[in-house]
Simulated scan of single mutants.
Amino acid sequence: MMLCLLLGAAVWHDVKARRIPNAVVFPGMLAAFVLHAALPAGPGLFGTPMGGLGLLSSLGGFGLGLAILLPMYALRLMGAGDVKLLAMVGAFVGAGQIITVGLVTLVAGGVLALVFAAWQGSLRRLVINTYHMALHTTFSALAGVIATPTVPPEAASGRLPYAIAIAVATVGCVLWLRVHGELPL
């Protein structure tokens, strides 16, 4: 329940102001660390019966959640709030589940980008940009060169409220955990 409230607050802020405040993310991280450290050992906060995974697993989930989106932040494709939000989710779900949650988040983010681009009437531009980036990457790889395009592609989808993708993926994975006990992968 706490994770859903934090995700809801993050989505609200991201949709409203296109930023996720630290006042939402940092208390969530701390709460996840405390819960996993203080609760008796068990299958996790979303398992039955509820139990802590331990502080190390929570810290590992935090670190892996950070690592999943950090490259996109470094390339300026994503904001720092999105990266911190997935790290917070990692602190809740633990090291064993955050990779799956992260992969589902990336798929949900791709779908969100397509929907957002279609809504703005720029889906064609998004497809053309993707084609050119894939073509450039392929030729660079074949030439054995790591090169970046000299002209950045035209913006196709604007700034996405990526907290939506993180929240949808997280809630979906947590529901899967409640029903099946563990995530596939």
Rank of each mutant, 00 (worst) to 15 (best):
Gly94Phe: 12
Ala95Leu: 15
Ala95His: 08
Ala95Glu: 15
Gly96Ala: 14
Gly96Lys: 14
Ile98Asn: 01
Ile98Lys: 00
Ile99Glu: 11
Val101Pro: 04
Gly102Lys: 07
Gly102Met: 13
Gly102Arg: 08
Leu103Val: 14
Leu103Lys: 06
Val104Met: 05
Val104Ile: 10
Val104Ser: 00
Val104Tyr: 01
Thr105Glu: 04
Thr105Ser: 04
Thr105Ala: 02
Val107Met: 14
Val107Tyr: 12
Ala108Gln: 08
Gly109Ile: 05
Gly109Val: 06
Gly110Ala: 04
Leu112Gly: 00
Ala113Trp: 14
Ala113His: 08
Ala113Ser: 08
Ala113Leu: 13
Leu114Pro: 00
Val115Lys: 05
Ala117Cys: 04
Ala118Met: 15
Ala118Gly: 07
Ala118Asp: 14
Ala118Ser: 13
Trp119Cys: 01
Trp119Glu: 11
Trp119Arg: 13
Gln120Val: 00
Gln120Thr: 01
Gly121Phe: 05
Ser122Lys: 07
Ser122Asn: 11
Ser122Glu: 14
Ser122Asp: 12
Ser122His: 10
Leu123Tyr: 03
Leu123Pro: 00
Leu123Gln: 02
Arg124His: 03
Arg124Thr: 07
Arg124Pro: 01
Arg125Trp: 07
Arg125Asn: 05
Leu126Ile: 06
Leu126Lys: 05
Val127Pro: 02
Val127Phe: 07
Ile128Asn: 03
Ile128Tyr: 07
Asn129Leu: 11
Asn129Pro: 04
Asn129Tyr: 08
Asn129Met: 10
Thr130Val: 11
Thr130Cys: 08
Thr130Met: 14
Tyr131Phe: 13
His132Phe: 13
Met133His: 06
Met133Leu: 15
His136Gly: 04
His136Trp: 14
His136Glu: 15
Thr137Lys: 00
Thr137Pro: 00
Thr138Lys: 05
Thr138Glu: 08
Phe139Met: 10
Phe139Glu: 09
Phe139Tyr: 12
Phe139Leu: 10
Ser140Pro: 04
Ser140Tyr: 02
Ala141Tyr: 06
Ala141Ser: 04
Ala141Glu: 06
Leu142Arg: 05
Leu142Ile: 12
Leu142Lys: 02
Ala143Ile: 08
Gly144Pro: 01
Gly144Thr: 02
Val145Asp: 03
Val145Trp: 01
Ile146Asn: 02
Ile146Arg: 03
Ala147Asn: 03
Ala147Lys: 03
Ala147His: 02
Thr148Asn: 06
Thr148Glu: 15
Thr148Val: 11
Pro149Ile: 11
Pro149Cys: 06
Pro149Gln: 14
Thr150Asp: 11
Thr150Val: 06
Thr150Pro: 01
Val151Leu: 09
Pro152Val: 09
Pro152Met: 10
Pro153Ser: 09
Glu154Ala: 05
Glu154Val: 12
Glu154Asn: 04
Ala155Val: 12
Ser157Gly: 03
Gly158Gln: 13
Gly158Ile: 14
Gly158Arg: 09
Gly158Phe: 10
Gly158His: 09
Arg159Phe: 15
Arg159Glu: 15
Leu160His: 08
Leu160Thr: 09
Leu160Asp: 10
Leu160Gly: 03
Pro161Leu: 03
Pro161Glu: 00
Tyr162Trp: 15
Ala163Lys: 03
Ala163Ser: 12
Ile164His: 03
Ile164Met: 07
Ala165Ile: 10
Ala165Asn: 09
Ile166Gly: 00
Ala167Tyr: 12
Val168His: 07
Ala169Leu: 12
Ala169Met: 13
Thr170His: 07
Thr170Gly: 00
Val171Ile: 15
Val171Leu: 11
Val171Asp: 01
Val171Trp: 02
Gly172Thr: 08
Gly172Tyr: 10
